[in-house]
Design a binder for these strands. Structure first.
Lengths: 354, 354
DNA sequence: AAAATTTACGGGCACGTGCCCGTAAATTTG
DNA sequence: CAAATTTACGGGCACGTGCCCGTAAATTTT
């Protein structure tokens, strides 16, 4: 680690020297503040372009006396699913990393089965006027509303886990749900023998509003349609989340159709299905979603064969970081950032990075 | 973005105030320099612990007048495989990110088929005395030697892509090769019907020295051994890299054994196998390694069914960054950091993050 | 043409840390 | 016990940027 060759100055001072002005004037040009004659401004801008000046982020952040406020709005983790523990960890990881640099993260939570709680929290955020918002939308109509309010107030926001269909021009970090369904279909296609059937299972209180499930199912069906084998798909919607209802739904389908060999559960509730499937005499292949304790347990004893996962923790982490970079350093917000689609099996789950 | 509530000081100055000394003295304690009485040192250390003081990295980096030199030693990308383009990109990505902060990355390359070139480059690095080294080892004996020299000179180093078997206590970022073979076996097990066989293909000039291939094969075999089905495995080593030799090797096995249904190629040369398999009348399932243009093309037309991949670009990026963090901020070097094992198919390759 | 205002710019401090240099006080040496 | 040396500490500048404040010069108003 050698000493730096000192001597020539760099950054704003170097620009100032070349332009024959003071650093303060260069600063005014960079920040587009007034108080500089057009002539000087042009001269300085030319030099900035010529040197391809990039500000030193360390110095910038150090000198800035601003506190950045970021608000996050995600579901609280419930008994029904521990999925949201992951994103929360991601948020906290990011928080820990940036908090010593004058950034505050304000965490808001809503109940996934309760629209009102979402609206209430959204209102609270708007009142607090943060510098940026990370949102995991669940209730489509209300989410659209909230996002519009943010735009009206000029608050940048990032969506995660699920986008809002039909709306472009916003920043999204999360899975490509359609591709994810396609992939599940591709995987399952290898496992089917002549005459076998596939059962798609949607488990949600509001399936019709659940963009997540619907989009995955679309992708899944699209694959078999492309291959002219739509006929082998059977589908079952289950609107109650308790184990008894789920078991009843699945067992009915299995009795009705003996040749079901693969079950594709479109979300993380796959463990509830596994609890039933485990007790069956015949082997049924189970494909589901998300790296959760309860799912991994069934993966471990091979009741669940594949889990598809999209790094929920990293999603949230990246969401917060992207916002921070955008606000603090005016870095551009990527329009869409699809997370990789990971396939987890008994063999590789131990090295899976959340 | 509000103004920060000014008033109370923070960092070193706050510690100094509480201890009733100057900031310079605190600084001496932090950096373990002499010139402080034991009494004062203890008092200051207590306060540091109490406040859980973490230095401001922005200020630290800004104030430091050191230039950090990092050397990287990886294979040059050849006609035979474009694999090393990925890691190189990762290195350059990291370089771009840190170069404005007084970090210089010096890139050295060797020819994978030429031990001497490796030794020569290694020597050149030692002579340049960098602050850290990122190494992708190929020739085991020579790599061990190089690593020992680094240790002797006190230069921290990180291995990537392949570790050195039997040596612990070094930093490694890359795949868990054994697990990777296990996973391939698990995948393949779903695709086999009664009576089918699996063909393992190793393609390398120095198979016996190639830790990569051997370790993957071990994992693969272990899976079938565990399930009492070792008998279905057939193996073929191919020592020449040209297409004709590869084709000859594969076709011989296929003729000898008509029930081969799955071919597992233990490295990125799978595309050469695909070129042959594509022309066969029957469908053979192909599993191979690495996200390369030539492999993706065959994935796209479904000649290759699965590619296993371990984010080569990210490996290199993380390697450089880990070194930088370690040297510049004396962050700890993780002993082992296994990259996730990703399964790439036609459906998900477009969202794969290298 | 003098006064009031606006424009255009420079000086200088602050952010938190690293580190050189100067100097009283403590200790060792003659 | 004075002189030489060592120890223990404080002062202060630098890193590159942000931004407040002061002030000549240019422009407008009376």
């Amino acid at each position: 680690m050698n000493k730096k060759d000192a001597g020539e100055l760099s950054g704003v001072k170097e620009i100032a020297r070349r332009a024959g002005v003071s650093a303060a004037t260069v600063d005014r040009v960079i920040h587009k503040r007034k108080g500089v004659s057009n002539k000087t401004r042009d001269r300085i801008n030319a030099i900035i372009a010529e040197l391809n000046y990039q500000p030193n982020l360390h110095a910038q952040r150090l000198a800035s006396r601003k506190v950045v406020h970021i608000a996050t709005l995600v579901p609280e983790s419930s008994d029904e699913t521990s999925f949201w523990v992951g994103p929360l960890k991601g948020i906290e990881e990011a928080e820990l990393e940036v908090m010593q640099y004058s950034v505050k993260v304000h965490k808001y939570f809503y109940n996934q089965n309760n629209k009102k709680s979402f609206v209430k929290q959204a209102k609270a955020i708007l009142k607090a006027r943060p510098d940026g918002v990370l949102l995991a939308p669940s209730f489509m109509e209300e989410s659209v509303h909230f996002v519009e309010d943010c735009e009206a107030q000029g608050i940048p926001y990032v969506l995660m886990d699920s986008d809002i269909p039909g709306r472009s021009n916003l920043s999204y970090i999360g899975p490509d749900l359609y591709q994810s369904g396609l992939l599940a279909a591709h995987l399952s296609s290898y496992l089917l023998q002549e005459g076998d059937k596939v059962l798609i299972v949607n488990i949600s209180k509001e399936i019709d509003n659940d963009h997540h499930l619907l989009r995955k199912e679309e992708g899944f069906r699209a694959y078999y349609k492309e291959h002219g084998r739509e006929g082998i798909i059977i589908k079952r919607d289950i609107h109650q989340l308790d184990h008894a209802s789920i078991e009843a739904g699945i067992s009915r389908e299995l009795q009705r159709n003996r040749s079901i060999r693969v079950i594709f559960v479109t979300n993380s509730r796959v463990s509830a299905v596994a609890a039933y499937v485990q007790r069956l005499p015949q082997k049924v292949i189970l494909i589901g979603y998300d790296f959760l304790k309860e799912n991994i347990d069934y993966l471990h004893d091979r009741t669940i064969d594949f889990l598809i996962c999209q790094k929920p923790q990293q999603q949230a982490y990246k969401g917060v970081m992207a916002l921070y970079q955008h606000i603090a350093f005016s870095a551009p917000l990527e329009k869409v950032h699809y997370m990789p689609i990971d396939i987890i099996t008994k063999e590789n789950f131990s090295s899976y990075e959340k």
